[in-house]
Amino acid sequence: MSAYVEALIQRQLERDRLRELIEDAETQHGPVDQAAVEAKRARLRGDAAGSVDAA
């Protein structure tokens, strides 16, 4: 059980750190363009909607 709890704590710490990195990047570069993110996700999945290059 303690290994499970330790894994949960580590995952939460990783998420907290990732959130900090995202906040720092958004402070420096502005908010993320959600449409661009979705277009790139679609390209990675090979969806037809993502076939247009959204740089």
Rank of each mutant, 00 (worst) to 15 (best):
A35H: 06
G50A: 10
D16R: 14
A42K: 11
D24A: 13
A48M: 05
L44C: 02
L13H: 09
D33G: 02
Q28H: 13
Q28M: 09
A36M: 04
E14H: 12
D53T: 03
Q34P: 00
R19I: 03
Q10Y: 12
R41M: 10
E6Y: 10
R43S: 05
E23G: 01
V32P: 00
A36L: 03
A36F: 00
T27L: 10
A48T: 13
A42T: 07
A42H: 11
G30N: 07
R43Q: 12
A3R: 13
R11I: 04
V37M: 06
R17P: 00
A54F: 07
E23K: 10
R15G: 04
D24V: 08
A49S: 13
Q28K: 15
A48E: 10
G50W: 14
D33W: 08
H29Y: 11
Q34G: 02
A55L: 09
G46F: 07
V5W: 03
A39K: 15
L13W: 08
A36V: 12
R19S: 00
V32N: 01
T27I: 11
L21Y: 08
E26T: 10
P31E: 15
E20Q: 14
R15N: 00
R15P: 00
A36C: 00
R41Q: 10
L18T: 10
A3H: 05
M1C: 05
Y4P: 00
L8S: 04
E20M: 12
T27C: 02
D24N: 13
S51M: 09
S51V: 11
R17V: 02
Q34T: 03
R11M: 07
R11F: 05
Q34H: 13
G46H: 08
R19V: 01
V5K: 05
A39W: 11
A3K: 06
